[in-house]
Design a protein around this nucleic acid. Structure first.
Lengths: 193, 193
DNA sequence: CCCTATAGGGTACGCGACGTACCTTACGAG
DNA sequence: CTCGTAAGGTACGTCGCGTACCCTATAGGG
């Protein structure tokens, strides 16, 4: 039979198949047998590359989106912050986010996998974006300079994340985002009164 | 053969066995067969009471601790808050907390189970304690009255939770707790400057 | 231009664990 | 005493992971 795929090419095929399975069935529904079948290969080829299902899942996840949106810069801190939260909320509540949550749950026991995930999910990039946003706001006089602190900058996203963990999930209502911004973030960075 | 346990008694035996398994092997290591064996019964008796492993795990979890500590009231908001966070950190990083995390991960997909867990893990009680703490502080003039808001009160615990989710876990260093209090919580409730 | 090491393909299987089916046996309420 | 209900015993069906073997194509060096 004609051509047999190898190396790079086969690897991409496997990742592609795994990503499709993730999209259709989520992480818990992604089985090794089905990935292999879909990629038109067999489990051997997979296990030669990734030590277990979780590793493949994480590797495949990056194939689902490398979309990096530009940072919002609307002119006011409040709407920048809301925009960031809304984007995150959309991402997390999309089917896409469901997969990410499945992966997170699977990796929760294993610190090694967790760091792998953090790298691939662009959390650090996001944090830097918030910090930059705060610095711009401070320059405009909308926030205290002291507030341009890592812990402060990451607070809104942390709260959103925790909100997801608390609820069953699908999506956090917009009111919650507004509340995070108006009751916590803004009072925190500009000082009350 | 002598006496055959029934109803209440058997149920307690099963829960006890499940709790022991949880303690020794965590949730992912708690198998139905072993729980049944340890309780000196069989899986039938279990499945007649709980529909699946997760439900049993959650039910058994409450057998591990009903310890309800009194709320701290040290006289200053800062040390009250730190005390609360430290207690939570100890609980979460104990073997006990490992089990809870396992359960949470298992329940992450299923909103029904999640609400079950929230009820049994006393999260609501904790939230009320924070709110009470804030109100006392406001009465002493240590915090703005406007800060006695649900979202504000739950912020430190949310941040701690998210911190756990981000790292691999075992334990959050004390500096982080201090930072949450000094960089976020206190500035937020007392207003900067 | 052939030959051999390497990697892919096919397939079967061991194993652990969940959940179910079915029958037998004690218990206790009437 | 009897009979329905619940417990005990056991065996399975099913799935999915990870592994073992053996065969076959293909690349790359001699």
């Amino acid at each position: 039979m004609g051509t047999r795929r190898r190396g790079e090419e086969l690897e991409r095929a496997i990742l592609h198949a795994a990503a499709e399975e993730l999209r259709e069935s989520g992480y818990s529904g992604m089985t090794m047998d089905r990935v292999a079948a879909r990629a038109g290969t067999n489990k051997n080829a997979i296990y030669r590359r990734w030590p277990h299902r979780a590793a493949l899942g994480i590797a495949a996840y990056r194939h689902l989106s490398d979309a990096t949106m530009p940072n919002p810069d609307t002119g006011t801190l409040r709407s920048d912050a809301l925009e960031m939260l809304r984007r995150a909320n959309e991402t997390w509540s999309s089917p896409h986010g469901a997969i990410l949550r499945g992966l997170l749950a699977a990796a929760a026991d294993d610190p090694e996998l967790l760091t792998l995930m953090r790298e691939r999910s662009g959390a650090d990039t996001m944090d830097r974006a918030w910090l930059a946003m705060l610095e711009r706001a401070a320059a405009r006089g909308e926030a205290l300079a002291a507030a341009a602190h890592h812990r402060v900058a990451t607070t809104p996203m942390m709260l959103l994340r925790a909100e997801y963990a608390m609820r069953g999930i699908p999506s956090v209502p917009d009111e919650v985002l507004v509340e995070i911004v108006d009751e916590v973030f803004l009072p925190l960075v500009r000082g009350r009164g």
